[in-house]
Design a protein around this nucleic acid. Structure first.
Ligand SMILES: [Mn+2]
Ligand SMILES: [Mn+2]
Ligand SMILES: [Zn+2]
Ligand SMILES: [Zn+2]
Lengths: 146, 146
DNA sequence: CATTAAATGCAACTTGATTGCAAATATTTT
DNA sequence: AAAATATTTGCAATCAAGTTGCATTTAATG
């Protein structure tokens, strides 16, 4: 499953989000748009460095601002590390398969859970060890406290 | 939702898993059984230390062996930290709610996803920001490579 | 071009988790 | 019960992802 968002425009995306057009942000966004799957910060650094060296901290801050503006999605893994993918119209929310061994994340078809299980039962070659359903938010107490 | 596994016996659980009965393992397991929700390593340490001080590394290794023997479940959070809960018969797999603010994890009813959404739509006071469906396992290549 | 606000780079730091190895403890054998 | 063996533990060092403070640079604005 490719992201199929080659059409997303770097400049337009930044402008729509009201983010200034720095070379670093352009480079990171370009890499994200061209990616064929979720990328780690390390991988993003490796790819941006082909054209210009960017500081690790800067990448973290850029990803953080992209996330706040819903340009990208953060996909936390079970190894204390997150991967990132575009959150554009061409790439709706979908489940992911994470290989514990090579620490690679694969996008799964955007099906409902029942359909997804059928999909796995089919010609899928993944060996599933566990499935986490993780609901994130803010609890009652913390809501009242602010 | 309490774990309701007060009945699980420390000695019996260890014996069934073929794990030797060290004071440290007994202490950790006792704390896990008495817990009323998922615990972090820090919280486990705090509770075991009330009776005997255990090294942090030892707790990690104990939790790791408990997990391998399906005595407990690991619940990774989106903050690079895992929480742990009993995996006994009285505590079947279920979704969890994680508060980003106080970093507390709450157990949710073990319903199917569609029912769970109804549950949230009801008198629930959680503010949901995002839901991660996380499928873990080993991919095709990694399976063949071993 | 000058001004100002925002973004970046660097170094140091934080935190959860892991590793190597010697010492202690549990289990097995005699 | 004592000795032999295997397992487990504790400590210190280390790792890796991610964060923070602050000086410097860059982008937007007029
Ligand atoms: Mn994806
Ligand atoms: Mn639970
Ligand atoms: Zn793999
Ligand atoms: Zn909270």
């Amino acid at each position: 499953m490719t992201l199929e968002n080659e059409h997303c425009n770097v400049v337009a995306t930044l402008r729509k989000a009201g983010l200034s057009r720095t070379t670093q942000r352009m480079a990171v966004l370009k890499v994200m748009i061209q990616a064929d799957g979720p990328l780690s910060v390390g991988e993003i650094l490796k790819r941006t460095d082909l054209e210009q060296r960017i500081n690790k901290v800067t990448v973290y801050r850029i990803l953080s601002s992209f996330k706040e503006n819903s340009i990208i999605r953060e996909l936390p893994t079970d190894h204390g590390m997150s991967l990132y993918e575009m959150a554009c119209l061409h790439n709706p929310v979908h489940p992911h398969f994470y290989c514990k061994t090579c620490r690679t994340m694969s996008c799964l078809p955007p099906l409902r859970l029942s359909q997804a299980l059928d999909w796995f039962a089919g010609p899928s070659t993944f060996r599933i060890d566990d499935v986490h359903v993780h609901v994130n938010g803010v609890c009652r107490q913390c809501q009242e406290r602010s």
